[in-house]
Computed example of a mutant assay.
Amino acid sequence: MRNVKNYLNLFIEYLQIEKNYSKYTIVNYSKDIEDFFSFMEEQAMIHLEDMTYNDTRLYLTKLHNKKYSRKTISRKVSTLRSFYKFLVREEILTENPFTLVTLPKKEQKIPKFLYEEEVEQLLTISDCNTPLGQRNQALIEVLYGTGIRVSECCNIKLSDIDFFIETILVYGKGGKQRYVPFGSYAHDAIDQYLSVGRKVLMSKLKVSDQHNYLFVNHRGTPLTDRGVRHVLNDMIKKAASTLHIHPHMLRHTFATHLLNEGADMRSVQELLGHEHLSSTQVYTHVTKEHLQRIYMSHHPRA
């Protein structure tokens, strides 16, 4: 199996250099392929070309028996299809046994979102007279006001913000860049945080440890995804709410509220940084529910 591991290393280099995939994505690709190698060893396969279409059916059966979700199985098959496609392109193999494998249909889960009253409640929790309160207010205004991913939010640097035209340069998946607008509420919250709160928090760092990241924790170091989750959970507790919130819910809320107010799908797709329109279309299920509720509440013949 030594040559097989070498091929994996080549594929990882390809994902890093040519595809510019994130570390998180590459880790998942590697794990999926390593799991596949374990299956090959169980089936006494030594070479990648030993894999046939019939073997792929056996592999799928094994994944189903392990009770993997359809989404996980689809990801694993997609990973292996890409892996074999790369090896065929490099003329290491002549056939891709996963070409004809059909992916199981994904479960259509309607994204959870916050109603406007719930968002308003969250926006009044922070004590804006304290440095951390100012940071928290700026954080939630940016997440809800722009719809960016939490990882994108944590990576914002001061140099990425243009207050004059109210846009933020965001670095998305695969290193792709896009500009997202922000409104007056986010503008004011960021401005107050930068004028007072961030300076106080950054004063805890040595001069040699100073950095350019917008959001920082109580020690002055850059805020992480985990830190954002902690901040939101703390805000929920202060609101005495039974609501369970995760950071991505604010992104779902951003998209849902835009569509409910009549924004077109393509514009929302661009704002969210979705590569495919199908990723954005999931929010139409929510807006249809919203429209149906309005119809049933207000139409005289409903």
Rank of each mutant, 00 (worst) to 15 (best):
A44Q: 12
A44W: 04
A44P: 04
M45A: 08
H47P: 02
H47M: 07
L48F: 03
D50F: 00
D50A: 00
T52F: 00
Y53A: 14
N54C: 06
T56V: 12
T56Q: 03
R57Q: 15
R57S: 12
R57H: 09
T61G: 14
K62G: 15
L63S: 02
H64C: 05
H64W: 08
K66I: 03
S69P: 05
S69I: 07
K71L: 12
T72M: 05
I73R: 09
I73M: 14
V77P: 12
L80E: 00
Y84L: 02
K85A: 09
F86W: 05
L87R: 15
R89G: 14
E90P: 08
E90M: 14
E90L: 04
E91R: 09
E91A: 09
I92L: 01
I92D: 01
T94D: 13
T94F: 06
E95H: 10
N96K: 06
P97D: 10
L100G: 11
V101K: 03
T102R: 13
L103C: 05
L103T: 15
K105P: 07
K106T: 09
K106F: 06
Q108N: 13
Q108W: 00
K109M: 13
I110F: 05
I110P: 07
I110Q: 06
P111I: 11
K112S: 11
K112H: 05
L114F: 11
L114H: 10
Y115A: 00
Y115W: 11
E118R: 14
E118C: 08
V119M: 14
V119H: 00
Q121W: 00
L122I: 09
T124Q: 15
I125M: 06
I125F: 03
S126Y: 04
C128G: 12
C128R: 15
T130K: 13
T130A: 09
T130S: 14
T130M: 12
P131N: 00
L132Y: 05
L132V: 13
Q134W: 08
N136F: 03
A138R: 07
A138M: 07
L139C: 07
I140T: 10
V142Q: 12
